[in-house]
Amino acid sequence: MRRQRLRLLAVAAALIFAMAFAGAPAHATPGVLVYPGMEIHQGTTVCTLGFVDPGARIAFTAGHCRGDGPVVDNVGNPIGALASFRDNTPDGATVATDHLISDWETISLAPDVMVNDILPGGRVLVSDPAVVPTPGLPICHFGVVTGESCGTIESVNNGWFTMANGVVSQKGDSGGPVYVITPDGRAAIVGMFNSTWGNYPAAVSWQSASQQAREDVVQAASGQIFTS
């Protein structure tokens, strides 16, 4: 079932990528490597890539990172195109714990970039449905500004959670992966950095974001490419 969903996501993303770049001169530079935790630019916005699926050639980041034109790396090489997004991140320093926050973007990766699922520190970033955010769970977060910082989940709310006890983040870390270190030394993603609410860095749940992305594949196939 998961393979079928990934194939569907890949087919829809390929169609979206072709539409986004139809008639455009921009192309990815052969040899550019795309990986989770890398710095990406969309328009004037700098963010962190959260999750990369090498098989489907799809990447995720925060929805509020979206911008005009192609998605590029830190030196301006195009690596892909916005495929779909959801973003209802509220303005302000506080948010009610029952507020449903959706903040993710899928990126269809260009056919000529190299892709892997290895974080800058060397760990393989995987998606494991059995690993879910729970209060007190030890986690780490990677952002292009602050690097890797670790702590625990402070509270789990409606599609998002807050972090404490050592987790830090700055502007530019948005979209960066939040993960659990598994016994075999890999990293299992549980979220993507969203914002800081009060004193706590917050992330959207990976389970919620990936499920919503799968739902939007059906909408994209029906002609509704972008969701907000």
Rank of each mutant, 00 (worst) to 15 (best):
R5F: 12
R5D: 14
L6V: 12
A10R: 07
V11D: 12
V11K: 03
A13K: 01
I16H: 05
I16A: 15
A18S: 12
M19L: 15
F21Y: 14
P25N: 08
A26N: 06
A26P: 00
A26G: 00
T29A: 13
G31E: 07
V34N: 03
Y35L: 10
Y35C: 04
E39D: 07
I40V: 15
C47P: 01
T48R: 01
G50K: 01
F51Y: 15
P54K: 07
I58L: 08
A62Y: 01
A62K: 03
G63K: 02
H64R: 07
H64E: 08
H64I: 09
G67M: 13
D73P: 08
N74K: 14
N74T: 03
N77F: 09
N77M: 03
P78T: 08
A83E: 12
S84P: 02
D87Q: 06
D87W: 02
N88I: 13
D91C: 01
D91W: 13
D91I: 11
G92T: 11
A93L: 13
T94F: 13
T94M: 09
T97W: 02
L100A: 15
S108D: 04
A110E: 02
A110Y: 01
A110P: 00
P111A: 14
D112E: 15
M114D: 12
N116I: 08
G121Q: 08
G122P: 07
G122N: 03
R123C: 10
L125T: 09
L125K: 06
D128N: 12
V131E: 11
V131P: 03
V131R: 03
V132E: 10
T134C: 01
T134Y: 07
C140N: 01
H141I: 01
G147Y: 10
C150M: 10
C150V: 07
T152I: 15
T152E: 12
I153Q: 02
E154W: 09
S155D: 11
S155E: 11
V156Q: 07
V156F: 09
G159D: 03
T162W: 00
M163N: 01
M163V: 04
A164L: 09
A164K: 13
V167N: 07
V168T: 15
Q170I: 02
K171Q: 14
K171C: 03
D173P: 06
D173F: 07
G175D: 06
G176Q: 08
I181Q: 05
T182S: 05
P183F: 08
G185F: 10
R186Y: 04
A188H: 00
G191N: 09
S195G: 04
S195Q: 10
W197V: 14
G198S: 09
Y200S: 15
A202D: 06
A203L: 04
A203W: 00
S205L: 03
S205E: 04
W206R: 05
W206I: 05
W206N: 02
A209T: 13
Q212T: 04
Q212D: 11
A213E: 02
A213C: 08
A213D: 02
R214I: 09
R214G: 12
E215H: 12
D216Y: 07
V217C: 06
V217I: 15
V218K: 11
S222M: 13
G223C: 04
G223A: 05
Q224G: 08
F226T: 10
S228W: 13
